[in-house]
């Protein structure tokens, strides 16, 4: 305990490099944190090996039936064996997620940018946006299916409705962080409203915009999968329903692994973008 104080140079005004945290709701988690050292990466890999290997041994030793918990080796084998069958479903899921998220995020971002310019409008609109944020868009899926059938459209709409408001409230928080001095600076050099927007307001809001995009993409993924589980015969979500009804647990977990990979990829992507575009926040 003593060393934590004594080993540090007492510069209290400097912000400390915070260690990497996995949360994504905070501002700093995206933008701060140093790169992992080789040792840390090795340790993370080691933990994975211990967990996977341990699960394998434990499940075998305790003779847990495979329809309850499949062996990690069975899951790995299932991914390989089922790949050609799962790939089109993966592409459907990625397509729905990509299109829905793009539409939702664009609208959310634009609305945030416009609304924050007019405080009165913002006050009127915010409760409705909160309503959209807090309402599980999933509840709308059966309704949307009635309207649009079992294709991709209802899912894309649900994804857009789930991710858009997330992007919007976070971006709006970012756009609200106005620094009058910086706007005055740009103005003093003759900047017009559009230049102030692109050169001051957007970079300033960037950390929060990225948080919004990350949270929105994760919400989008959840909604895609859940919407696919509700109805339809394609997409990874429908495979979850299918495999669980057939009690094919290795395949079921293989799909979950694929979904987790998509989620982690989003996180890694936005983390990387955050380092690049919002690293100044740290």
């Amino acid at each position: 305990m003593k060393n934590t104080l004594e080993d540090r140079i007492p510069e209290f005004n400097r912000k400390q490099d915070s260690d990497d945290v996995a949360g994504f709701s905070g501002l700093t988690s995206l933008t701060s944190g140093r790169n992992r050292t080789l040792l840390e990466i090795a340790a993370i890999a080691l933990v994975a090996v211990v967990i996977v290997g341990g699960a394998e041994l434990l499940i075998k030793a305790m003779e847990i039936p495979h329809y309850v918990l499949p062996l990690p080796s069975q899951i790995a084998a299932a991914i390989v064996a089922e790949w050609t069958f799962l790939q089109p479903h993966l592409l459907v899921t990625l397509y729905e997620l990509g299109v829905g998220f793009s539409i939702g995020a664009s609208i959310g971002f634009l609305l945030a940018a416009i609304i924050t310019q007019f405080p009165f409008v913002e006050k009127i609109v915010t409760p409705y946006i909160l309503l959209l944020v807090t309402t599980p868009m999933l509840a709308l899926v059966p309704l949307l299916i009635l309207q649009f059938g079992f294709g991709s459209e209802p899912r894309i709409i649900a994804v857009a409705l789930a991710s858009g408001p997330m992007v919007m409230i976070n971006s709006a928080t970012g756009f609200r962080r106005v620094d009058l001095a910086k706007i005055a600076l740009a103005r003093s050099f003759g900047a017009n409203t559009f230049q102030i927007f692109t050169k001051i307001r957007i970079p300033m809001a960037m950390p929060m915009i990225l948080v919004g995009l990350l949270v929105g993409s994760i919400f989008g993924l959840l909604t895609t999968v859940a919407a696919e589980m509700v109805g339809g015969a394609d997409g990874l979500g429908s495979r979850l329903t299918y495999y669980s009804s057939m009690v094919r647990m290795p395949q079921f977990f293989a799909v979950i692994l694929l979904l987790a990979t998509i989620g982690i990829s989003f996180y890694a992507f936005f983390y990387w973008v955050g380092k690049k575009w919002a690293g100044w926040q740290a």
Partner: peptide, 17 residues
């Protein structure tokens, strides 16, 4: 604002990004 006039602000006012 006029191009012949430049302003220097308190606290430097650099853009941190």
């Amino acid at each position: 604002p006029h191009p012949e006039i430049a302003m220097i602000f308190q606290d430097a006012n650099l853009l941190p990004w």
